[in-house]
Design a protein around this nucleic acid. Sequence first.
DNA 1: TGTTATTTTGTGTACGTGCACAAAATAAAT
DNA 2: ATTTATTTTGTGCACGTACACAAAATAACA
Lengths: 358, 358
Amino acid sequence: MEKAKGKIRIKDIARMAGVSAGTVDRVLHQRGIVSEKSRKAVNKVLEEINYSPNLLARSLASKKSYRFICLFPAYQKGEYWESIEKGFRQAAEEFENYKVEVLIEYFNQFDSSSFVEAAKTVMKYEPNAVIMSPVFRQETLEFTHQLSEKNIPFSFIDSMIEDADFIAYYGQHSSLSGYIGGKLLFQSLPPNSRILILHTFRKGSSGAIQTENRKKGFLRYMEENRLNDTTELLSVEIFEDDDERNIKLLQKIFDECQGIQAAITFNSKVHRLAKYFKILSHPEIKLIGYDVLEENITYLKEDIVSYLIAQRPEKQAYCSIRDMSYHLIFNRKINRINYVPIDILIKENIDYYLNFNE
Amino acid sequence: MEKAKGKIRIKDIARMAGVSAGTVDRVLHQRGIVSEKSRKAVNKVLEEINYSPNLLARSLASKKSYRFICLFPAYQKGEYWESIEKGFRQAAEEFENYKVEVLIEYFNQFDSSSFVEAAKTVMKYEPNAVIMSPVFRQETLEFTHQLSEKNIPFSFIDSMIEDADFIAYYGQHSSLSGYIGGKLLFQSLPPNSRILILHTFRKGSSGAIQTENRKKGFLRYMEENRLNDTTELLSVEIFEDDDERNIKLLQKIFDECQGIQAAITFNSKVHRLAKYFKILSHPEIKLIGYDVLEENITYLKEDIVSYLIAQRPEKQAYCSIRDMSYHLIFNRKINRINYVPIDILIKENIDYYLNFNE
DNA sequence: TGTTATTTTGTGTACGTGCACAAAATAAAT
DNA sequence: ATTTATTTTGTGCACGTACACAAAATAACA
C-alpha cells in the first residue's frame, strides 16, 4: 500500500557501489576529490535507490552552527510586533536542536538613526542570516548591501524592498487587504453613505508603507465599483496619545455630519476608535480594522468592531526562520515571495482562529 | 538578551550529581531501580538547570518505532478527503526520521460493513496508534473498544464521538460554521427573502453528521435573529449523479417561485449548484457553500459562489499525526479538543489562502 | 626499478541519547 | 567470616551522519 521507503543508509550505498562510506560522503556533498569511476558508481546507486538523508543524524553530527538575527521595531505590550516576536521565539525553540541560535535586536521605528545603530550591532554579531522588517527604505538598502558583500543571506518580514537581494519575503499583500476592507465595508451599506477614514498621527512617523498601501487598495475598490460619486469620505486625523482631544474631535464631526454609516482605519489601532465610538454612543456605526490584537478582539466580541482583517504575524515570523534553516542547513528550495492569507474575522470565528495558531 | 539555554547534556548532569550517566537516564525515564540518595541528587541538579533533551539524538538512539494507521473514507479526485490524505502524507514525511510509519486504510463511507472490514484489517497491522474519521457511530464505538482493550491510543478527525476514550479530536465546530453561513447569507439580503437550502441525496448515505449540524447552526442563526417569519425556506433534494434531472428540478422551482435571493448547501458540493445556476442563468442568486475544493474555487473566482467556508483539512490531518507523535514519543501534553479555524473565503482572498498551506 | 609527489580512498571518532549488560556495593543467609 | 542473593551503579556500544586523518593507489620522474 505504501511504497517501501528506503532504510538505505550511507554505508549501504557504499557497499552497493563497491566503495567506502567516505567516498559516498564526498559524492553527496561534492567535497574532496573523487575519481570519475567511483563517482559514477555512487551516482548510479543513488539514482536507483532514491536516498534521503536522515536529517536528525545529519544535524547531530554536523559541526556547523548558525546564528540568525531578527531585526524589527521595539514595541509595547499588546502591539502587532509582539506576535511577530512570539513567532520568532517559537521557531527558535524548534530549531535549537539543529544548532540554530536566534537573537533579537530592536530599533525605534520612528527614528531611522536607531535603525542604523541596530544594524551596526547586528554586524558585530557576525550572523549567518538576518531576518528584518524594512521600515526605512534607504537605510535598509545600505544595510542589505553590507550583508550581501559579506555573503550573509537575509529575508524580509512584514514588508519588502523589491530591489534588494533577499532570500525570501513574508507578509500580507497590503493593497489587496485594503481592497477587501472596502468590499466588506460597502456590502450591506445603503448607497449614498458617509464614511469615516481614520489615520493616526505620530510625530516622526514616516507613514508606514503597509498602511498607505491598504488605503490605496481601499480606494481602488471604490473606483472599480463606481462608489466615488455616491460616497462621502471623511478623512480624520487621530492623535497617538490624546484620548480627550480625539473624542472632542469626533464629537464635533458627529455633530456636523449626520448619518455616518461606517468607519475604517488601516493600521492596527481600531480598538481606539471602538473605545471612542462606545463612549460617544455610536455603536451602530460599522467599524472595520486590521490585526488581531487583544484589545481589538475585545471590541470585535462586543460587536462594536464588525470585521478584523488579519495576517498571521506569528506564522510569518516562524516561517521566515524555518525556511532560512531549510535553505542553509538542508539546502532545500524555498519560495521567495510568500503572501500570507488575508483572514476575515468576525465575532463568531475569532475564538477558534486563536486556538489553532499552534 | 537571550537566556543562556543550557548546553548541558546528560553526562554533565551525571558529573554534577556525582553519579553515572546510566543513573541519570534511569531517573529521567523512571526505569530500573535507583537509590533514594542518587535520585535526590539527580533531581536536584535537574531542577537547577532546566534540562531539555536533544530530541534528535533521542530519536536516533531509540530502538522504538511506531506504526500509525489512518482510517477514513475512500474518495474520488477533487473530493474533501483528498486534502485530508495530503495532510497525512505530509506529516508522514516529516516524522519518518522519528521512526513513525504512517499507513492509510480506506473504507466506503456509504457502507458500514466496509468499515467493519477495514477495522479488522487495521487490527492485523498491530498499530501503535490509529487516526480515524467516525462516520458510523455504532461500528466506530465497537472498534474503539477493541483498541482501548489493547491499549492502542486513537484520535478522531473531522467529527468525533464524545463518549469514546480518544486522545484528541481535530475538526470544525460544525454547528458554528453553519451559524456563520447564516450570518453571511443574510447580511446584505433584503427582508422577506426566499432562500434555497439544498441537500444531496445519496443512496445508503447515513446523512453526514457534519452536514446536519451545520444546518442546525444555520437555523439557530435564523431563530436568534427572528428571521423565521420573514424568510421563506425552500428545501430541495439534489441527486448525486443526475445532472439532467437536477436541472429540470431547479428550473421548475425557479418557474414556480419568483425572487429567490440566495441559496446554501451544507456539504462540500456547492460547485454542482454553481454549475446549475450558471446554466440556468441565475448568477444573481447569492450562493454559499463549504470547503475548498478545486471546483468550488473556480466558481468562487467566477463570482457565482459568494462565500466558501473552509476548515483546513490538511492541517487537521497533519496535526493529528504530529500530536500523536508528540504524545507517544516525546510525552508532551497535547490538546484534546481542537476546533479548526472557520475560514471565510471570498474571491479576493482565496489565492493567498491556498499558497500558504505550507 | 625505485623514489617521491599526487591523487584517491578507507577508517575512526564524535554528536547526545537509549539500552543491554557487566561490575560494584550492599544486604541476607549460613 | 564467607558465600550467596539482591540491589544499585557504571560502562560500552548503537543509531546515521560529518569530518579529520591515515592509508593506499596511482602518477611522475629519475
